[in-house]
Design a protein around this nucleic acid. Sequence first.
DNA 1: CTAGATACTTACCAAAAGGTGCATACTTGT
DNA 2: ACAAGTATGCACCTTTTGGTAAGTATCTAG
Lengths: 138, 138
Amino acid sequence: MPPAETCTPTLAGFTCGLDATLRVIAGKWKPLILYFVAQGGPTRYGALRRAVRDVSDKMLIQQLKELEADGLVKRTDYKEIPPRVDYSLTPLGRSLAEALVPLCSWGTDNMAEVTRVFAEREALQDGRIASKRSAAAE
Amino acid sequence: MPPAETCTPTLAGFTCGLDATLRVIAGKWKPLILYFVAQGGPTRYGALRRAVRDVSDKMLIQQLKELEADGLVKRTDYKEIPPRVDYSLTPLGRSLAEALVPLCSWGTDNMAEVTRVFAEREALQDGRIASKRSAAAE
DNA sequence: CTAGATACTTACCAAAAGGTGCATACTTGT
DNA sequence: ACAAGTATGCACCTTTTGGTAAGTATCTAG
């Protein structure tokens, strides 16, 4: 872990490197997209859609456009008649995807823990909802 | 980069380790909080507030509570009369903070690039706003 | 006596994120 | 002839997120 000084004084509007990174990968799906494209090489839109589960078309397209605008992914349109398009990583995107690997490992290593914590939280929420309901019923 | 198979088949509701991690650090400020606390050791609320620039009290407290509930940070209340509280990382939190380091480095290494891209995007947006305004003026 | 610091809490409101469903234009399979 | 797949675009709406401003209790400095 570098000292605080490497992080505090920076140009532009970023408070530190992490801040800069976050502006680029903020968004519910971007890290996942990056990660899947990194694994599969050039990936067709439909394949990505199936890989990143629960993402809607709207969101996937939107995030892909932003990633493209940010120079992380490259869109290739083959101009074929049933549309064919695929997405691949630029060198910049590839380097970011690599920086994402430790996060992926952390999640894999601590998934049991995370699952447990989330179960507890949901239990609490259900409790609150239940009590709200009963309060409203009076 | 591990093969796709390490990522696809998992328990609970997570599609992969990265997905699990993201559920925990999602939120505009959480990675930054984690990172600053990792650097400073036990950090007082006010110090954190000043370190994570532009964060409001509401947000900072909220995210701290979630991080605490998720077992990543530990809150210590000294019960003193002008309130004194500090936040430190749990072992789990420390391991996550370490997984964040590559992201921080990436941001630092590519800050020029990121800055440039963001400047372009803002220029485009301003253009759109301007054209919208002129269209509305007719 | 008033201002400011401490660590929050709450209510209210605006903005952003995200979901659903419909439409496109063309091809392939039934 | 009709449904499904292909990669999007668009309009509408709800949910989530986040900001602002005020308030709390106690202490210290001016």
